Amino acid sequence: MNKLFTSPGYQALMALQRRIHAFTIEAAAELDSDIDQPDAPLWTSTYQYLAVAPLHGGLHVEYFGDIWEEPFQWALACLAEQDVADTLVSLAFTGPDEGANGTREWEFTPLLDSAVQFPRLRFLSIRPTAPEDHNISMIVRAGTIMEEGGEIARFAAKTPYLSHLTVPNAPDAAFFQVPLDHLSVLRIGGGMDTQGFIGNLADARNLPALGLLDFTECTELQFRWAESRAADAVTAFSSYQKLFSSAAFDRVHSMQLRNSRLSLEELQTLGALRPKLQFMVIQAAQGGYVSHFSKDVFPWRHLVQPDPGLR
């Protein structure tokens, strides 16, 4: 452990931490914010940080900040150094609910284009969209318009011992070509496109250790009326049936299904296919403003429900 704290990787992370802190100090000064005052608010525009903590003989690193300013680019450049990557066992990305045109786009492309590998990384999390968020978080390939473009697969390919993965949107089919022998927990946040995730998982052979699947249905379910949605925008019941009947699901002991449109009969049919599965349904879709209900611009009726305890 002592060698960890004197390693070049740890020193590089400490230097990055100080650099980001200096950036926030300068940003606060530009806003005439006196950070020495105990009642000064921690405005999100100046509240960015890199947290580093020892964990199981390696390091946990969490980046909290904006996605378009210099600190994020500095963080990607630092993580692309092999000395840094060699120290990491856990890596997380999060930040304030800020974006553009309703999206918060994480572009890891500079890091993924590098030759760096994460030989000890076991936990990787990029925060999914929360129900109260104004912006949909997503991983996108740089140079595209809101396209994931295989970036999650490229990130996973750099982590041979990854056991826990949380991402804000579904990966494309390339993800299922990456050997992920140790991945036991997989959480997929609700994005604008599931990219056929459930059907692709049913055919997968690269996740032999998968034990817990947490899957969130496409946000199109709450953002567009059914008649205006693309036919395959929301996962069909037949795709869930295929997954529950597949060998890829044999070792899965728990599934958390979020924001689905499946009926009671369909959910019970799936449960009967896997009677030993801990199968939980979670309905916590993104919120909407009451002032917009009367305009009928988005499906809002799921936000106004009767007492569920009434028979």
Rank of each mutant, 00 (worst) to 15 (best):
D83L: 09
R19N: 13
P38L: 08
M14F: 01
R104Y: 14
A230F: 03
L210Y: 04
P208S: 09
R261V: 15
F197V: 04
L183Y: 01
F72S: 04
Q117T: 15
M138D: 08
A28G: 04
F93H: 09
F279H: 06
K242V: 00
D66A: 09
A247L: 10
D250I: 08
Q278R: 15
E132N: 11
D34L: 04
H21C: 06
I126S: 00
M280A: 13
P41W: 01
D133F: 14
Q278C: 10
D214R: 02
G143P: 04
D32F: 07
V84P: 04
G99C: 08
D214G: 00
D36A: 08
L262A: 07
L213G: 02
I67D: 07
P208H: 08
E30Q: 14
L165M: 12
A174I: 00
G143C: 08
L310V: 13
F298P: 04
G57Y: 01
E69R: 07
W43P: 03
D203I: 03
D172C: 00
S263T: 15
R311P: 05
D97R: 07
P128E: 05
S254R: 15
V234Y: 00
Q305W: 02
A233M: 07
L121V: 09
T87D: 11
N259S: 08
L31G: 05
R154A: 10
M1C: 10
G196C: 03
M138Q: 15
G65K: 01
T159C: 15
S163W: 05
L273D: 13
P71V: 04
L88E: 06
G191D: 08
T103Y: 11
T94L: 13
I20F: 04
H182M: 11
R19F: 02
S137I: 01
H182K: 12
Q305C: 05
V297C: 07
G102I: 02
Q256C: 14
H292C: 09
V304S: 10
A204K: 00
I25S: 12
H253N: 12
R229D: 11
A284H: 10
V178N: 01
L13H: 02
M280S: 14
T166I: 14
D66Q: 11
D214I: 01
A156S: 11
L183D: 00
F176N: 04
Q82V: 03
D86S: 12
T166D: 07
G271V: 05
A12E: 09
S254T: 15
